[in-house]
């Protein structure tokens, strides 16, 4: 199987992304959880800073699967910083009552375990919350159930979410929305289901998807070409990863999309988000603008790292 990126293309993309992440590590800094004492714990909601921090961790977790990346000194630096931030910010503080933070705490716990920094007492806290019988019994979509289930399984926690076949049948994968009407939200549903059912490309999806497999592959390809036309680099990267999860290889459309991502990587290393592409980042003052830009571009940039990992680990 050929790699999605040429070796020099991949080198430039990776170096740029890692450099940008290093420069912006402070922007991923989550709130000091044990300082938030004047809000009822049950009312504390996940915010964009916590989300960005968790997603950085999830991307770093995946680098551990690729020996070359796991040994990369810049990535080692990022991992150390992430672990230190997690400890310093007390991210699991009061988790038994901060129920809205549970999904992000589960991701962070799984990440710490994968990075070689398990926190056993947190595992017990999370398991107690799960045993209380509500986290896995809420009315949410199959996509969101699978998102949580994937990291609970990865962390070795016991839960009552349905098995993959049941979640598949509850999901849109067996009845995808017609593409001209599909929203970006629908497409994120598609990509996340594929990431987590396939463990980011490690598991062959054919046995699970059965007769739907080919149709989903074609749909993901069409969605990818549509997102290229839209210049939506966030979804382009997500769909490229999905195609890897669907065992697509040596495909010229995918190569073209990968090439486009490299072409649109900016000199400081980030991949542009939708607002950046539309030129609608217009905060008051440089600080505000920088923050807006960070929250627009960090996600596609992290996806670039996810994509490099998926591409490397499955070939």
């Amino acid at each position: 199987m050929k790699h999605l990126f040429g070796s020099s293309e991949r080198e430039v993309l990776l170096t740029g992304i890692v450099s940008w992440l290093r420069t912006h590590i402070d922007s991923f800094d989550p709130p000091q959880e044990d300082d938030i004492l004047n809000v009822a714990p049950e009312e504390i909601r996940p915010d964009k800073r916590r989300k960005a921090f968790g997603e950085l961790g999830a991307a770093l977790r995946l680098t551990m699967r690729v020996p070359e990346l796991a040994q990369n000194p810049e990535i080692r630096w990022l991992i150390n910083e992430w672990v230190n931030l997690a400890k310093r910010r007390q991210i699991f503080f009061d988790v038994r009552r901060r129920v809205h933070l549970f999904p992000q705490c589960a991701v962070a716990y799984a990440v710490l375990k994968a990075l070689g920094h398990p926190v056993e007492e947190v595992g017990q806290l999370l398991q107690t919350v799960l045993n209380r019988g509500f986290i896995d019994r809420v009315e949410i979509s199959a996509w969101h159930k699978l998102d949580i289930k994937y990291y609970l399984d990865s962390a070795g926690l016991q839960h009552g979410f349905a098995d993959d076949v049941t979640l598949l049948n509850e999901s849109t994968l067996t009845r995808l929305p017609n593409l001209p009407y599909a929203t970006t939200y629908d497409l994120y549903g598609l990509t996340h289901l594929l990431f987590h059912f396939s463990d980011f490309g490690l598991k062959d999806l054919r046995p699970l998807l059965g007769r739907h497999f080919e149709q989903i592959r074609r749909y993901a390809g069409l969605a990818l070409s549509m997102c290229l036309s839209m210049q939506d680099w966030d979804l382009t990267a997500e769909l490229l990863m999905s195609r890897i999860c669907l065992s697509v290889s040596d495909n010229l459309l995918d190569r073209e999309a990968a090439h486009a991502l490299c072409e649109y990587q900016q000199s400081t290393g980030f991949l542009p988000g939708r607002a950046w592409m539309e030129g609608t980042i217009d905060g008051e003052g440089a600080r505000d603008r920088d923050e807006q830009e960070f929250f627009d571009v960090y996600h596609p940039t992290l996806l670039g790292l996810f994509l490099i990992c998926c591409d490397a680990q499955t070939r």
Partner: peptide, 25 residues
């Protein structure tokens, strides 16, 4: 014609239909 031109055009067409630019789509 070589791939992926037809796929890219199809994607551009679906994008146009999704924004209700019917003539372009």
């Amino acid at each position: 014609v070589g791939a992926p031109l037809p796929e890219l055009l199809e994607g551009a067409g679906i994008h146009a239909l999704s924004t209700y630019d019917l003539p372009l789509g």
